[in-house]
Simulated scan of single mutants.
Amino acid sequence: MKTYYYDHSASTPMLPMVIQTMSELMKLHYANPAALHKSGAEAMKLIDRARASISDRMGSEPGEVVFTSGGTESNNLAIKGSVNKVARSSKHIITSAIEHASVFESFRQLETFGIHTTILPVDRQGKIRPEDVANAIRKDTVLVSIMQVNNETGVVQPIREIGQLLGEFPHVRFHVDGVQAVGKVPFSWKEWGVDLYSGSAHKFGGPKGLGFLLVKSGNELSPLLSGGDQEQGTRSGTHNVPGIVAMSQALRLAVESQEARRERMYAIRRRLLHIVGDIPELLFNGVHSDEADGETGAAPHIVNFSYPGMRPEVIIHMLEKHGILVSSQSACSSKSLQPSRVLLAMGQDADRASGSIRISFGDEHTMEDIEILGDRLKRVVAELKPLERNSK
C-alpha cells in the first residue's frame, strides 16, 4: 500500500536538489569557516553567498540575517535576546494564547524571572485583534511576539496591520514567528514594521537543524550562547556550511515558486474542506476563507478538524493503517494527552480540543491524492463511530 505523508507542518521532505547540494558540500567543504587558511576562507565565502541569497529572498540586508539551529532557537533568541538587552528593571512583553511552544514557553520562563507578560486572546476563528495589541502596550513594554501562520490551524494573523499600529510605539520591538509562513504566504520585511522574523529550513524543503532570524539593523540582541564571535557576536558556534548553503537553496526554490504553488495548494485545501464538511462527525477548526492576497484568512497548506469523543491518537493510527500519515496539534506537543491549547484559546470545549487532527500537505500532493485521502478518512470515521463512547 502506498503511504501518503500529510504532516508537512511538522517537517517537509527535503528537496532532491537540496539533498544533492548538501551531500556534495559535505564531501568538499569540511573546513571550519573561522580558520585562516584557504579552505576556511572558501567555506566562509559559501556562507556569505548563502546569507546574501537569503537576504535577497526575504527582502532584508545581508547583515540582518543571523543563522541559527532552527525555529525554536530563532524564537528564543528573538524574545530572550530582546528582553535581556534592555537595561531597565521593569519590562513588559506581549504575545497571544495560540503561539508555538517555543514562544509561549519562553514567555512563561521569563515570567518566572520577574518579566511582566500579557497573553492576548483570539476570536473563535483563532485570529488576533490588532487593536488588542495596541491597547496592551505600556510604557515598559519592550516586545510584542505574534506568529504569522498558526502551526495547528493555519490561520494567518494580521501582521501588516499590527506592524503599522506598533509604528506608533518606537520603544517596542515586533517579533514575528514566520516558521509556517516562509514560502507559503506573502511577507514584506521592509514594509510591515517587523523587527525580528524567524524561519526554519525543514519547513520549506531544507535540512533539519538550520534556521535563520532576521534582525533589523539597530536592534541588538543579548546572545543566548557564550563562545566565539560568530554571527556578529549574536550566535556563537561553528557554522554548518553544507546546511546553511542547502537552506539558502531551499529558500530560493520555495520563494521563486511561491505564487504558483500557493494557488495550487489553495485549490487542494478547498477540496479537502468540502470533503471534511460532508462527514458529520468532523468539525472544522479555523478559517474557511483563503484570501487572494494571502495576508489574511488561512494558509494554503493546513486543515484542522476535530472528532469530538474520539482520541486523536486513535484516528491517527487508524489512518496510518490505511496509508495516511497525519498529526495532532504540533509535532512538539503531539505526545501530550492534554487538549490543544490553541483550540481552547479559540473557545472550543475540552472534548473538541482533545480530538483534533491536523492535515498539512505540500508540493507532491495532487487533487487525486486528496480524493484518496477523503475516501480513507470517510472509511476510518465509519469504522470508529461504534467506538466513539468508549474512546473518551
Rank of each mutant, 00 (worst) to 15 (best):
G227L: 05
P207H: 04
P242M: 10
G233P: 12
A246K: 11
G243M: 05
Q230S: 08
A246S: 06
R235Q: 09
Q232A: 13
A250F: 05
L221H: 04
G206I: 10
G209D: 07
E231L: 00
H239E: 09
P242A: 02
T238E: 13
S236D: 14
L210I: 14
R252P: 05
M247K: 02
N240C: 03
G237E: 06
L213R: 11
G211T: 10
I244E: 12
S248A: 15
P223C: 03
R252G: 13
L221R: 14
G209V: 12
L225Q: 14
P242W: 11
A246E: 05
G218M: 09
S248Y: 11
S226Y: 09
N219Q: 05
T234Y: 00
L214F: 04
G233N: 10
S217M: 04
V215K: 03
A250H: 04
G209H: 13
Q230E: 15
G211Y: 09
A246Q: 08
N240R: 04
K216G: 02
L210P: 01
L251V: 13
S222K: 15
P223Y: 06
G243E: 00
L213M: 11
P207G: 07
G228F: 10
A246G: 04
A246N: 08
T238L: 12
P207N: 03
Q230H: 10
F212C: 06
E220Q: 15
G227I: 06
L214G: 12
V245I: 10
Q249H: 14
N240S: 09
H239M: 12
V241M: 09
S217Q: 05
V215H: 01
I244L: 12
S226H: 15
